[in-house]
Write a protein that binds this DNA or RNA. Structure first.
Lengths: 167, 167
DNA sequence: GTAGTATATATCGTGTACGATGTATCGCAT
DNA sequence: ATGCGATACATCGTACACGATATATACTAC
C-alpha cells in the first residue's frame, strides 16, 4: 500500500515533468501541447478525420473538435468536407503552415525523456524499462479483471518486443 | 529514444488509468477527483489556508481557489477569515459534511494501484519499485541540470527509504 | 424506396488548470 | 507613522477535457 502510494506519486511526478517540459518547447512556437500533437498527426497523415485524431491522440471527440477549431482560426489547419462520405471532414495543414513546417514538429515527442534516460547506466535503463513493462501489463490485467469497457483504451500501448505475457 | 517513447507512453497510460479509476469512485460520491483531494486535505488538517492546499496538492493557487469556491457553493466547505493574519482564509469542513464523513475520504488515495501491484509477484514488485526510483531520481537530476526553477516542484516526492543518491 | 439504426461532427454545460493581474494586508526599514 | 516590497487570495481570460445531446449523413433491412 505504501509502495502503491509511491508508484502513484511517481507517475504523477514524471507526468507533470514531461508536460512541463513539452510545454516549454510548445510555447516557443506559440502553441499548446495538445495543439502540437494535433498538428503532428495531421502532418503525419497529410489528411485526417476528427475520428482518426480522436483515436490516435486518445482524446474525446469533443476535445479534438475544439482544438481543431482553434487551430483553424489560427489558420494552421483547414477543414474540407469529405467527398465520399459527407459526414466526414478532411483536416489538413493550411498552405501557409505546410510550407515552413519542418521535422521539428515530429521531433517534439518526448525529447525530454531521452535526456533523462541517458543519465542512467545501461543496466539501470534496463531495470527502468523492465519495471515499466511489468507495471503496464499488471495495469492491463487489472483493467481486464474489472471489465474496463474501454477496449480501445488498451491497445494503445505498443510493447517493445514480445507483446502479451502474464497469466 | 525508442525506450524513451515507451516510457512516455507508459506513464501516460498509467496516469490515465489511475485517473479513470479514481473518477469512478469519486462520481459515486457526486464529486470530482480534485474536489475529493481538496476535501481530503481539509479533513486531514481540520483547517487550512489556500496556500497550504496549493502546496500539498501541487495545483496553482487559482485552481485551488476555483475548486474551493465550488465546494463552498455545494456547502461542503466553509471559509472564515483568519484572526491573526487577515490575508489568510481558514478553510474547514461544513458542519453538515463534518458529521457524515468517514475514513472513506482518506482511503480514496490510489486504491487502484494497490490492486495492480498485488497482481505481481514479490520480486516483480521489487523491480517495478526499483525502476521507478531510478527513473524518478534521473528526472530530478535532469530538472536540476536544466535549472528548472520550480524548487517546490522537487521536494514533493518522498522516497521510501534512503532519499538522495546518484551523482 | 422507407424506416430504423449506426456513424461522424458539432455544440453545450461544467469543471479543471494555469498565467496574469488586481487588491488587501503584513512586515520591515526608515 | 510612512512608505514599500512581500505575501495571500480573488478574479479574469483562455485552453483543455469530457459527457450529453443535437444534427446530418450513411447503411441496412424490408
Amino acid at each position: 500500500m505504501d509502495s502503491a502510494n509511491f508508484i502513484g506519486e511517481s507517475i504523477d511526478f514524471i507526468h507533470r515533468y514531461t508536460m512541463k517540459s513539452l510545454q516549454k518547447t510548445a510555447e516557443e512556437h506559440g502553441v499548446t501541447i495538445p495543439q502540437i500533437r494535433v498538428i503532428g498527426e495531421v502532418f503525419a497523415h497529410k489528411t485526417v478525420s476528427i475520428k482518426q485524431l480522436t483515436q490516435n491522440l486518445k482524446m474525446t471527440q469533443s476535445t479534438v473538435s475544439d482544438i481543431v477549431d482553434r487551430l483553424i482560426s489560427k489558420e494552421y489547419l483547414v477543414k474540407t468536407p469529405n467527398k465520399n462520405d459527407k459526414r466526414l471532414v478532411d483536416i489538413s495543414l493550411s498552405a501557409r503552415l505546410a510550407d515552413n513546417i519542418n521535422e521539428s514538429v515530429t521531433e517534439l515527442t518526448n525529447q525530454s525523456l531521452v535526456g533523462v534516460l541517458n543519465l542512467l547506466k545501461q543496466d539501470e535503463q534496463k531495470t527502468v524499462i523492465k519495471g515499466m513493462e511489468l507495471l503496464v501489463s499488471a495495469v492491463k490485467d487489472k483493467m481486464i479483471e474489472e471489465g474496463m469497457e474501454n477496449r480501445e483504451f488498451l491497445d494503445i500501448l505498443y510493447f517493445p518486443e514480445k507483446d502479451q505475457r502474464r497469466r
